[in-house]
Design a protein around this nucleic acid. Structure first.
Lengths: 120, 120
DNA sequence: TGCTTATATGAATATATATTCACATAAGCA
DNA sequence: TGCTTATGTGAATATATATTCATATAAGCA
C-alpha cells in the first residue's frame, strides 16, 4: 500500500501534467465517503458527550446517560443508535436495562487525540 | 491536567454516588463543542477530497481544485472558506490567483490516522 | 477601454439530521 | 392483572449546511 502520510505542501504544482497525475492518484470515492463518515460520528456535541460519560462511567444504561446529560431518553437513544451502527459502543442487556459501554476501536484513538489537542 | 485517555469500560457503575461523580467530572461545554467542531471539518466528502488533492499537489489554486474534483469553483470556494476558518489550509496570493496549501496542524494528524484505519 | 478569467460571497434551494412527540414493547412489581 | 419504568422507533418539526445562481471585485490582456 502506497504511503499516504500527508505533510504540508512543499511542492509547487500548477502544470497540466501535474493536474493529470493528481487526478490519477485520486482514491476511490468510497475511501472519501468512509473518512467523512468516520469523522461525522463525533461531529455532534451530544454524541461527544455520550462518549465522554461512557469513558467516565464504564457502563451506563440509557436512562443514566440521559439524566447526566439533562436530555430525554428518546433523544439519547436516537444518538446511541448511530454510535452502535458505527461500532463505537457495545451493549449488554440485563433485565429491562440495556447497558452501553465503549467498544475499543479506531475512533476512540481519534477521539483521544482530538481531546488532547483541544485541551492544549 | 488530568489524564483523560479513554479505554473501554472495565468499570461497572450504576449507583447514585457514581452518577454524581460523573456529573462533576463533566468537561466544560466548550470542550465538547470544540471536539465536535474539529471532527465536523472533515465530516464532509468534498472537504476530505480537497485535503487529499492539496496533499498530492502541494499548492493549488481554486480553479485547479475545482477541475480535478469536477465541481464548480464557487462550490469549492465555499468549502475552502471553512477549511481556512479552521486553519486547515493557508493561502498565498499571486496576481489573480490564490494558491491554497495544507497548513500543518492537529487536524492533519487526525486525517492521516483516519486514512490509515479506513485503508486497513 | 472593453473583454476574459479567477475568486469570493449573499441569497435561495435542496438535503441531512437532531430533537420532540406519540406510541409500542418488554420487564419488574403491587 | 394493572401500573410503572426502561428502551426503541417512526413521523413531524426544526435546524444546519452543501450547492447553485447571480453578482461583485480584481487582475491580465487585446
Amino acid at each position: 500500500m502506497k504511503n499516504l502520510q500527508y505533510n504540508c505542501g512543499e511542492r509547487r504544482c500548477v502544470d497540466e501534467t501535474c493536474l493529470a497525475s493528481i487526478k490519477e492518484n485520486m482514491l476511490d470515492e468510497e475511501v472519501f465517503l468512509d473518512i467523512a463518515e468516520t469523522f461525522q460520528v463525533l461531529s455532534e456535541p451530544t454524541r461527544v458527550k455520550i462518549v465522554h460519560v461512557l469513558a467516565e462511567g464504564g457502563e451506563l444504561c440509557v436512562h443514566h446517560i440521559a439524566t447526566i446529560l439533562g436530555m430525554t431518553s428518546s433523544a439519547v437513544s436516537h444518538q446511541l443508535r448511530q454510535l452502535r451502527n458505527m461500532r463505537l459502543v457495545k451493549t449488554r442487556k440485563e433485565a429491562q436495562h440495556v447497558y452501553y459501554s465503549l467498544n475499543d476501536g479506531h475512533i476512540m484513538q481519534l477521539f483521544n487525540q482530538c481531546l488532547e489537542h483541544v485541551q492544549e
